[in-house]
Amino acid sequence: MTFVFSDMAISADGFASGLGQTAQKPFGDCLMDDLLRWRFEGAEENAAEIDDIVNAGAFVMGRNMFGPDRGEFDQDWTGWWGPNPPYHGPVFVLSHHTREPLEMEGGTTFTFVTDGIEAALEQAKAVAGTDGRVSIAGGATTVNQYLRAGLIDELRTHISPVIFGEGERLFLDVPAQPMSIVSARASRLVTHITYRIG
């Protein structure tokens, strides 16, 4: 059975990004450097968690995680990551607007899915295989949709010591459900907590 997981970097008060996302500010009006400092300044100390974030056979992400535009796609926009995104595999992007698949360097192909979260996940599972892994890459709104639908097996939170006060919150409108802690590890800049869902 395909294993479905998600990694979310969040603030101490549960936000994955701020409001006001633009092409220049992928995380909106928030202290992005504080949220992700552990991935750069603390890269060696958190190497195992960083490596595991992109260790999947396929990925699903929301439209906002792919880019800042709304409505019809800006065909010149190829994502926040430059010509060689970190995924190096198939990425299924949830959208209300069609776009032809976008092939990038390193084996990343963005496929745009317009018929819902279940359809995107089924396509990702088909690519990853029954013994494979699918990452629900984000953002928070997308992860919350999959949590509401009961479609995530494991949630890994990476909690940074910063308060945003507002923004895109993890667990927004997610119904009560049991979780168990698989692992917890604190480092200098982040606390990693992994939950098994259900």
Rank of each mutant, 00 (worst) to 15 (best):
M1Y: 06
M1H: 13
F3L: 14
D7K: 09
A9S: 15
F15K: 07
A16I: 13
G18C: 12
G18D: 09
L19E: 14
Q21P: 04
T22R: 08
A23L: 12
A23H: 13
G28Y: 08
L31I: 03
R37C: 10
W38H: 09
W38G: 09
G42Y: 06
G42N: 05
A43F: 11
A43E: 12
E44M: 10
E45N: 08
A48N: 08
E49K: 07
A58W: 01
F59E: 00
V60T: 08
G62D: 06
R63H: 12
N64D: 09
M65N: 11
M65P: 00
D69W: 03
D69P: 00
R70A: 11
G71E: 06
E72H: 11
F73A: 07
F73R: 04
D76Q: 15
D76V: 00
D76C: 02
W77T: 09
G79S: 04
G79Q: 02
W80G: 03
W80E: 04
W81A: 13
P83R: 14
P83T: 13
P85D: 01
P86C: 10
P90C: 09
V91L: 05
F92V: 05
F92M: 06
V93P: 03
H96I: 02
T98K: 14
R99N: 08
E100I: 00
P101D: 07
E105A: 15
T108C: 03
T109K: 10
I117P: 11
L121W: 03
E122P: 00
T130Y: 01
D131V: 04
I136F: 04
A137K: 00
A140D: 02
T141P: 03
T141E: 13
V143P: 00
Q145H: 12
R148H: 04
G150D: 08
D153W: 04
T157P: 02
H158A: 11
H158D: 01
V162G: 05
V162M: 08
V162R: 08
F164C: 06
G167Q: 09
E168D: 12
D173E: 15
A176S: 12
P178F: 10
P178I: 10
S183Y: 02
R185L: 12
A186G: 14
R188V: 11
L189K: 08
L189R: 13
V190D: 01
V190M: 11
V190Q: 05
T191M: 13
T191Y: 00
I193V: 15
R196I: 00
